[in-house]
Write a protein that binds this DNA or RNA. Structure first.
Length: 403
DNA sequence: TCTGGGGTCCTAGGACCC
DNA sequence: TCTGGGGTCCTAGGACCC
C-alpha cells in the first residue's frame, strides 16, 4: 500500500448540507459547471446558463468556481498533508496525491494515516475530506471519488481488479465524452470490458490513449507521486459579455490578457518562448495561432506585440464576431537560467524593470492601482467590454461540490 | 441546453538539419 | 542532380481534467 489520494469536499460544509448548490461563473455568459442533487431536482443542469438556473431554482446557493479566498483554505489543507509526508502532489485546489509509504513507520498503517488526515482537516478547517487508499495512484483517486462525501475507502492489492472491473469506462482518467462514445461503439461499457479486449484494438481506435486505458484496466500505472511539477504554460482568457466584431476592442482585451499572462510569468519566476492566441468565434469554432519568439520573455509589452500580430495575421475576417479571446505563454523556463545576454549595441528596453515596478505597486495597493493607459477606465480583472463588471466575491468559501 | 477559465497531453504535418 | 531516413522544432487542433 503505497500511494493514497485525498480530496476535500465542500458539499459537507454544515451550512450547505441538503441545500441546492450551483457552481458557475459570474459573468453574463457563465454556465452551470456542476450542481448538487438537490439543485438538479429543480431542473438545473450542467452547461445551462447561470441566469436560467437562477430562475429555475432561486433558493439555490450560487458559488463562483475557484475563487480567491478558497486558496487560503487550500494552503492550510495542503500543509496538513505535508506534515504527514513531503510526497504530496497537489492536483487542484482541493485535491492531492500522497505517497505515504515513507510515513508508515512513524504514523502507522495507511488506514491510520488516512484517519489522522481526515480528523485534522475536520478539526482545523471545519470541512470534511474523503480519502481513497490504493496501491496504485489512479485507483486511489477513483476510490476517493467513490467514497465521497466524507468517506474512507481502502482498495487492497488483492482486491484491485474486483474493484475496478465493474466500474463504468468513464471512471477511468482520460475517458471523456468522445472516448466513451468510441468505446460504446465497440460495445465496451465497463472497465472489465476494456480489460478483455486486445490492446491493439484499443490502440487502433484511440491511439496511444487506448493502450494506456488497457493498462489502467488491469490496474497497471507506473506513474509516481511527483511533489513538484513544473508549470508548462500560463495564460488568461475571457469570454466577452456579448460577441465582439470591433478589432479595437479585441486588441484592448489582448492587451489586458497579455498583462495578466506576463504578471503570472513574473510571479512564477519564468520566461516564455512561445505566445499563443486563442480566438473563439460566435459559432464556437476555435482557432489558435502561435509564434515562437527569438528570446524568451516575461514582459507584457512583448507578449502583447506578438499576440496582436498573431490576431492580425489570423486570416479571420476583420469583422468576424468573436466570443472569446485568450493569450497563453508556453515553452517556460526559469528566469535565472535564461538571463538575457544583451548584444554590444543593444540597450535594455527598461520595460521589464517598469513592469516589475508595477508588480510591486500592485502587491501593495492592489491590481487596479496601475494599468496601461489604453485600459484606463476599465478594470484589469474584468473584460474590456464590461468596465463596470461587479467583482462579486464569493460569499461562501469553498469549491464546487462533487456531484 | 448552447457551451467558463485554468491547465495538461497527444497527434500530425512541415521545415530543417545531419 | 536527386534522394533516404531519423531527429528535433514549430504550428494548429483537439480531447480531457478540475
Amino acid at each position: 500500500m503505497d500511494a493514497f489520494y485525498a480530496s476535500v469536499e465542500l458539499r459537507d460544509r454544515p451550512e450547505l448540507r441538503g441545500k441546492p448548490v450551483v457552481v458557475g461563473g459570474l459573468g453574463p455568459r457563465s454556465v452551470v459547471l456542476s450542481a448538487t442533487y438537490e439543485a438538479r431536482a429543480f431542473g438545473v443542469r450542467s452547461a445551462m446558463p447561470v441566469g436560467r438556473a437562477r430562475r429555475l431554482c432561486p433558493q439555490a446557493v450560487f458559488i463562483p468556481p475557484r475563487h480567491g479566498v478558497y486558496g487560503e483554505v487550500s494552503k492550510e489543507v495542503m500543509a496538513i498533508f505535508r506534515a504527514v509526508t513531503p510526497e504530496v502532489e497537489p492536483l487542484s485546489l482541493d485535491e492531492a496525491f500522497l505517497d505515504v509509504s515513507g510515513a508508515t513507520r512513524r504514523l502507522g498503517t495507511p488506514r491510520r494515516i488516512a484517519e489522522l488526515i481526515r480528523q485534522q482537516v475536520r478539526e482545523q478547517q471545519s470541512i470534511t475530506c474523503s480519502v481513497g487508499l490504493a496501491p496504485v495512484k489512479f485507483v486511489a483517486k477513483i476510490a476517493s471519488a467513490r467514497c465521497k462525501p466524507d468517506g474512507l475507502l481502502v482498495v487492497p492489492a488483492d482486491g484491485l481488479l474486483d474493484f475496478l472491473h465493474p466500474l463504468p469506462v468513464s471512471a477511468l482518467w482520460g475517458v471523456g465524452d468522445k472516448a466513451e462514445e468510441v468505446l460504446g461503439r465497440l460495445g465496451l461499457r465497463t472497465v472489465g470490458d476494456i480489460a478483455h479486449v486486445p490492446a491493439a484494438t484499443l490502440r487502433r481506435e484511440l491511439g496511444a490513449a487506448g493502450e494506456h486505458l488497457h493498462a489502467l484496466a488491469w490496474g497497471r500505472d507506473e506513474r509516481p507521486v511527483t511533489p513538484r511539477r513544473e508549470e508548462k504554460s500560463v495564460g488568461a482568457e475571457e469570454t466577452f459579455p456579448t460577441d465582439v466584431d470591433d478589432p479595437d476592442v479585441v486588441k484592448k482585451e489582448l492587451l489586458r490578457l497579455s498583462g495578466r499572462t506576463a504578471r503570472a510569468l513574473r510571479a512564477s519566476g519564468c520566461v516564455a518562448r512561445t505566445v499563443t492566441v486563442k480566438l473563439r468565434l460566435a459559432n464556437f469554432k476555435t482557432i489558435t495561432r502561435s509564434r515562437t519568439l527569438p528570446e524568451p520573455t516575461d514582459v507584457a509589452r512583448e507578449i502583447y506585440a506578438a499576440a496582436c500580430a498573431l490576431y492580425e495575421g489570423s486570416g479571420l475576417d476583420s469583422r468576424a464576431r468573436l466570443r472569446l479571446v485568450g493569450v497563453r505563454a508556453t515553452g517556460l523556463r526559469p528566469v535565472s537560467g535564461a538571463a538575457r545576454q544583451l548584444a554590444f549595441d543593444e540597450r535594455p528596453s527598461g520595460w521589464r524593470e517598469a513592469e516589475q515596478a508595477v508588480d510591486r505597486i500592485a502587491r501593495r495597493f492592489g491590481a487596479d492601482a496601475v494599468r496601461p493607459a489604453a485600459l484606463f477606465g476599465s478594470s484589469q480583472d474584468g473584460p474590456a467590454e464590461a468596465p463596470s463588471k461587479t467583482r462579486d466575491e464569493p460569499r461562501i468559501l469553498g469549491n464546487e461540490p462533487g456531484v
